[in-house]
Structure formats: structure tokens, C-alpha cells
Write a protein that binds this DNA or RNA. Structure first.
Lengths: 149, 149
DNA sequence: CAAGATTGAAAACTCAATCTTA
DNA sequence: TAAGATTGAGTTTTCAATCTTG
């Protein structure tokens, strides 16, 4: 099978995409660190905050975040230790567990969010035209449709 | 200071972008793992392979990859242990060190590359129109210009 | 036995401290 | 003292094994 290597334009786009990601990640990490949060912490907090009662089954949270349950379990232990979340029993299934955002978790999230959103805006969203934003969204959705189970 | 939250379209694009990244990373990781490589390994190998003599000063390699020297140093120790790269002295500066791709490193890279490129093609590049590819590249370059040093 | 989740050990990454030469 | 790089300790992530309930 002959390999179809990337054309110059394709290779350039791929490399630029990779570099953008890396730089944006560094910037976001820096921004969140100022509020005492890691990227992972913030993902957990925002994902929970979007749910009714800010609570979720652990397995569901893990699959939503595309994390392994093991990773999430370890991470929740640390976050619970800092008072950001709490583990509670699942109603109707004694095997299951539910994580809930604590008041403190809410407070920290609300404190960090404005600066985070501004960071995303300044360094990503606001650098695009409407057409580019739309192109990005379209492409992203196609990739997600293809790879998302 | 009032926060400019993301508009629905912006939020959707941001979320889709994040999910695309995560899924694409998982797929690429899976593909490379079949050849015994991590994403980090592959980045080191390809970056080195693009240089004259497949050799680079360690500090230069670190900054090119946007890694800390510490991370790279630890990683090179492991890669050297597997025979993928070799540390050598830098000509003209006895403080410096140079990493070189070994023959084995080349072999592994050439073995893994075709499948990796196909993975990137199938799940990313080939899912875009020419216009979308161009939009992506433009945006990525803008972000890189803004955040890169 | 399968599902839901946790655990412990090993690998990878980060951070600050250290070592060596310019 | 600064530049180039490595080291060790602590944290996070991964991988496989385990525990508990359906």
C-alpha cells in the first residue's frame, strides 16, 4: 500500500494546528494556575456545573470527559481533598457513586471563569472571522462524529 | 470589568474544538502505541529527523518542542535507554549536549510514519475541504503569531 | 460473571535545586 | 555569575488488579 504523504499545504496546516494547541494550552494553564486550578480541575468543574444539581455519576463523568475511570477516581480524590467536590452514594444502585460540586467548588469556578473565558477569547475566538469560526466548528464536528464512538 | 461570555456559536465551536482534540489525540496515541511509541516519542523523533544529521542541541530541541529542558532531559534518558536516540558532546561548548537519532531510531520512525500519516489523513485532513484547510491554517498561524514568544 | 468504581505500583511530568563549564 | 543541562522529590497519569454489588 502506497502511503499518501501530506502535501505541503496539508503539512503546514497540521503543524500549525499542533503548535497552536501547544501554545494555547500553555496560556490556558498559566491563566488557570493563577486561580489555583489545573486544566483537568477546570474541566471537571465545568462539566459538573452544566448538570442538574451539579452532580453526575462517576462513570458518566468519565466517559463525558473521555477520561478513564481510574484517572478520574484518582483526580476526584485529590479534588475532594481540596473541598472542590464531594462523593455521595448513588440512589438505587449501591455500586455506583455520584460526584457533586460543593459550594466551595462553585465559588472557585465562578472566580476562575471570567479570566478563563477572556483568555480563550483573546487568544483564540477573537482572532477568527465569523467564516473561520464556522469552518472550524464544521471541521471539529466532522472529526467528532467520525471518532466519537 | 464586564465579562464577554461566549456566544452560543462561539461556545459550540470551542467545545467542538476541545472534543476533536481529545478524540484525535486518543486515536493518534492508539495508532502510535501499535509501534511502541508515545506521542512524545514521535514528536522527538520527527523533530530530530528534520534536522541536518538528525542532531540537535538539547536546549534548541526543547524550545522547538515547547517543552521544558527538564522534561526533555528525562524523556531523552528513557528514549536513549531504548536505543532510539543518543547523547553526544557539543563541538565547541563543553557545557552543551547534542542528541542524535540512532539507526534504530530512524528505523522505528520509518516504520511508524506511514500509519501515523494515514491516521492524521483519515481522521483530520481528509475530512476538510480545501477552503476549510486554509481557514484552519490561517487561524492557527494567527494564534501562533500571537502566543509564540 | 458483569457493572461500577477504587487501589497500588510504575511511568511520565513538573518544579526547584544542583552541577559543570563559559 | 550566567548558560546549558541534569537530578531528585513530589504530583499526575496509566495500567492492571481488586473490591463490591447487580
Amino acid at each position: 500500500m502506497a502511503v499518501r504523504w501530506l502535501e505541503p499545504d496539508e503539512y503546514d496546516a497540521w503543524r500549525a494546528y499542533r503548535r497552536m494547541r501547544a501554545l494555547l494550552d500553555l496560556e490556558i494553564t498559566r491563566d488557570l494556575a493563577a486561580h489555583g486550578l489545573s486544566d483537568a480541575d477546570y474541566d471537571v468543574l465545568t462539566t459538573l456545573s452544566g448538570q442538574d444539581g451539579a452532580r453526575m455519576r462517576i462513570g458518566e463523568l468519565a466517559s463525558r470527559m473521555l477520561w478513564t475511570q481510574s484517572r478520574l477516581s484518582h483526580h476526584l480524590t485529590r479534588m475532594a481533598g481540596r473541598g472542590l467536590v464531594e462523593r455521595t452514594a448513588a440512589a438505587g444502585d449501591d455500586r455506583g457513586a455520584v460526584v457533586v460540586l460543593t459550594d466551595h467548588g462553585w465559588t472557585v469556578l465562578r472566580t476562575a471563569a471570567p479570566s478563563h473565558v477572556q483568555c480563550v477569547r483573546e487568544n483564540f475566538i477573537d482572532l477568527m472571522s465569523v467564516g473561520q469560526l464556522k469552518a472550524l466548528a464544521t471541521v471539529a464536528h466532522r472529526v467528532v462524529d467520525r471518532l466519537g464512538r
